[in-house]
Design a protein around this nucleic acid. Sequence first.
RNA 1: CGGGGCGUAGCGUAGCCUGGCUAGCGCGCUUGUUUCGGGUACAAGAGGUCGCGAGUUCGAAUCUCGCCGCCCCGACCA
Length: 575
Amino acid sequence: MRWTQTFIPTLKEVPADAEIISHQLLLRAGLVRKLTGGLYTFLPMGLRALQKIENIIREEMDRAGGIEVLMPALQPPDIWQRSGRYETAADVLYKVRDRAKKEWVLGPTHEEVITTLAANEINSYRQLPRNFYQIQLKFRDEIRPRFGLMRAKEFIMKDAYSFDVSDEAAMASYQKMYDAYTRIFARCGLKAFPVEADTGVIGGKHSHEFMVPAETGENEVVYCEACGYAANIEKATSGLPRTAAREAGAEVEKFPTPGVLTIEALSRPPYGVAANRQIKTLVYLADSKPMLVLVRGDDQLNETKLMARTGATAIRPADVKNADDLALFAALGAKPGSLGAVHHVPADWKVYADERLRGANDMTTGANEDGFHLRNVSMERDIKVTEWMDLRIVGSGEPCVKCSKPVKIRRAIEVGHVFKLGTKYSEKLGSNFLDENGQQQPCFMGCYGIGVTRTLQAIIEQSHDKDGIIWPAAVAPYQVCITPLNVATDGPIMTLAEKLHEGLSASGVDVLLDDRDDRPGVKFKDADLVGFPVRIALGEKGLAKGIVEIKPRGGELVNVAPEEAVSKVMELLAR
RNA sequence: CGGGGCGUAGCGUAGCCUGGCUAGCGCGCUUGUUUCGGGUACAAGAGGUCGCGAGUUCGAAUCUCGCCGCCCCGACCA
């Protein structure tokens, strides 16, 4: 391909609406252009890189036994009603109406469609296991699209769905995908690692996310360098001991604390109650039902854990600024800052307490009376805890839950997610099979996603320098850019450039020939910006000495004779 | 949706507070000359409903109100 025959609108300056480096480079290198927030047009360089990623995914999915299909993006709402997600996923569902005013949804994912297919087509254990996948556009009504392709209203996803005869067989399917994902990201030149994950609205129990470490990532990952434990902070636990029990004895005692509304205020003189000797009492609404949530004063509540452990589909903290919630605080008898779980807890409220508080005594907490707190509180003796559960956010440096060495926390971009789904969807949508004994059983399912467009941007986020993108060869839009410094069509330079183009193409290399009649500086800058793995510069001086220059992006320049150029490039690309 | 910021030529921006223009600059673009190994130099040009709509005023890019769009932080997630 010739530069002048394709379309690579590079930008010298950083677009004002791009904040993170990968977003800036997507625009500057001419890979994409924004139509509006969260919607992008892929230009040739972006499209080619995208297709390379897609093909790697196809090869590895096929290798792992996947069967490629293509499902409709436009879907009937009734299958979403049947799965129950018409309500639970309502926030992200785009809904459209046809001319008869009938409603349709634009698929944010395809569990409902594939399970409907399986319900109709898979009837026997002899047809299992099966793993269907597709690479397709997804639509999600994102609360806030951002960072270019990272979070868009419309994005390309590879989604796969496995069907098995048993939980054990499903585990094997899961493992196959886990391994395939590891290979896919490695082949894309991405350093991605699996972490234990929460399952969210998709449901299911067993789940890993594939994370690319990056400061700009939207996730936090807890990891242990010693033993390899890694988990999304939403899911992570640590090996911290429970709060030490002290000499038991004294009765609960109320004492005045005028104006004291925070853990911090109570820890200062004249009270001097250490935060780790306080009980933090939070009022939450889970699917509109009020509850009390107790964590230690120096801990933070992990809302994702609360949601997962309580099985709620929506939770939120009660808020004094919300008129509807005032009755909740009135029921307790106090406002935030003086809340507690010892007295005046309505009988129908559940009280969930963090494990770290189990057995704690000699604690201080709000008295449910404004301006008063209680001391000498014993969790077991004085509070009626409905259920103990792990509810706290893990902090950096806490002992690893597996090996007790201190854990670290870092930010990361989620590029893939694998789930074991169990029979949730198969039961609701009737995906059953007859087993060897002629008994009808629901299929055991798994689902597996890769954000393809996001992966593209994650590669850039992870692989760039001050001059531009540094493409891993496997996903570069073109692997080689030939840069003749004189483009006179009948000159020796252009003649050689054409010859090299031909030779490399014949060897199966994707080559771009920069035939623009521009100054060398312009062409070099653009080649660096777009990030081709190898650049071949052809100039008069070099040619006179019988050499062409081969420069790996970000590497050392080497001079070779023109006839050796093709083999040298092949050698560099093979690395 | 809550909080913050922004909207002036294809891109990046000055001017706005303290109304008074023919709206300025850099990049890019066009033409010519020049240069020719890391975004050449010179000259001449083209290109603007100052986001949209009302209002205040003799006069609005500038002040007021409403709307729209974009970016950032939070809730959502591949």
